[in-house]
Amino acid sequence: MSHAVHDEPGLKMGMPLPNGKLAMWLFLVTEIMFFTALIGTYMILRNGQTSAGNPWPQPHDVHLVEWIGAANTFVLILSSFFVVLAHHYLHINQPGKGAAYLGLTLVLGCVFLGVKAIEYKSKFEHGILPGRVFEKLDGPRGYEYVAKVKEQLKDIVDGKHHVDSKAMDAVKQLLTEITDNKLSPKQVNERVVGTKHVKPVDMPSNPQNVTGILELDSHAPISYSIPWGNLWASCYFAMTGFHALHVLGGLVIFAAPLVKHFIGGGLKPEDGLFVENAGLYWHFVDIVWIFLFPLLYLV
């Protein structure tokens, strides 16, 4: 800039950006750093801690279903599309359509959270929670594991839980063997998942080549060892949890213009700015999921 000593000062300083939108971008900057740290940590822990002999859990080890994740991705993408349309229609002065698309966005956000809730439920049912997953069966944890499995098997035999009749014999046999103290924790795990599916770290010293109970009935409510399972659950819940909180926040933000439309006397083209800012936030949340989905479910 030249030495503008005698310049007549301009009228307004600053950028041709409304304060709100500028602040939204700045807020997104902080969000980018937040999710960078969150996702970066996951990548580092996942790649740094594992080895070829002791790999990171596969999706099916931890009851993660790829197509559900993909479907949820679709839900979020569609909602992002709808937000763009909502803003577009407000912009060209068709507030009715704008509000309709906002409503659809809100619904899709709820669908996303609903699906997430179902996914979380399956984790809770299988005890795949930070600090509660069984791993490292050589340590004191191994005996806790055997005790837990014994309890679960008893429940099945007593009829409190149901398993496929094909698996019933194996359940009963395992229960007697555990009661007779014949099996080491690793061997119990082998009987549960089947020798083919035992992870290298959990392989007993003399594998028996048995068919596991879970191979006979994949829904049997019996715990098994997941190496790195606690770390996996920590990362999974931290990342998807914070993402879900952001979705929830987005729903609250989108509710505001809808309330205005239906109760407060209708949306005006000026509300486009609010919707645009809310949209920026929503698209960012979408982008985060665009990365979380492959990182958690596919890669």
């Binding site: 080895s51 070829a52 002999g53 002791n54 050589d138 290298p200």
Partner: peptide, 12 residues
């Protein structure tokens, strides 16, 4: 426990 796995974490 890690050491037993055979391959150390610095490979693979």
């Amino acid at each position: 426990i890690e050491a037993k796995v055979g391959e150390g974490p610095s490979k693979g």
